[in-house]
């Protein structure tokens, strides 16, 4: 349990490195991993957190003159259990919602994914992308898909196979993630950020009892989160 805290990145801590977390969501075999791989090509360092049934791709870039470290979270097949573990959504700054234009059911399942996303992250930017357009001779790009319009989400026709719009879509996802992190008004985010900073304070300084209490409560909160994640990951509960 102790090393879980070390291995799972924190995204709201202000410890010098500016980090954002972008998650991919959607049905099995819609091409989520293929899209991330196409964007990163060889310049990525995949990190398999096996206890968590997820894959992390780390990417360094610059947004508005600032160095940003982006972690793309990929489900590693977790979607087969129909819903994702809460830790997948935890602290995410942006979501890429993917469906497969060759399979209607993956489009019809978008509302379920979106609903689950909104339960955990009510306000983060979410992009919708229609993958595998090369597979149907691009004919599908003449059609408009109402799901994105209805929820006012940016929409992209992409192909992980020939690369169409993949880079554009990911760049915009990263920008939205940074934009969200800068301007979040989400209550949970603000509370988490306060707690993280208090946590740092109590560890690094001698503080009076008042702050110390707050520090302890932050500590407790984190431990609880870890426990919860560990249980889900091993699947023993």
């Amino acid at each position: 349990m102790a090393d879980l805290r070390a291995s799972v990145p924190e995204y709201d801590k202000e410890d010098g490195e500016y980090k954002v977390k972008v998650i991919c969501l959607g049905d099995s075999a819609v091409g989520k991993s293929k899209l991330v791989e196409r964007f990163l090509m060889d310049g990525y360092q995949p990190q398999q957190l096996s206890t968590y049934a997820l894959t992390l791709f780390r990417y360094q870039t610059e947004v508005g003159g600032k160095d940003v470290c982006v972690d793309f979270w990929d489900t590693a097949g977790q979607e087969r259990f129909n819903n994702m573990h809460p830790s997948y959504y935890y602290q995410a700054h942006c979501c890429i919602l993917v469906f497969d234009v060759t399979r209607k059911v993956t489009y019809k399942n978008l509302p379920n994914w979106f609903k689950e996303l909104r339960q955990y992250r009510p306000e983060i930017p979410c992009l919708v992308c229609a993958n595998k357009i090369d597979d149907v001779d691009y004919k599908v790009t003449q059609k408009s898909f109402n799901f994105a319009k209805k929820h006012q989400l940016p929409f992209y026709f992409v192909s992980a196979s020939d690369g169409t719009n993949v880079v554009k879509m990911f760049r915009e996802a990263i920008q939205s993630a940074v934009g969200y992190k800068e301007n979040t008004t989400d209550f949970t985010d603000l509370v988490m950020r306060e707690l993280e900073n208090l946590d740092d304070l109590s560890l690094s300084n001698d503080v009076d009892s008042g702050v110390d209490t707050a520090g302890n409560s932050a500590e407790t909160h984190t431990d609880e989160a870890d426990e919860e994640q560990a249980e889900g990951a091993t699947g023993t509960t």
Binding site: D27, S28, A29, E79, R80, N82, T102, R103, K104, V105, N109
Partner: peptide, 9 residues
């Protein structure tokens, strides 16, 4: 591939 088959299941 059946476009209506839910591969999550």
């Amino acid at each position: 591939i059946d476009p209506n088959e839910d591969l999550n299941k």
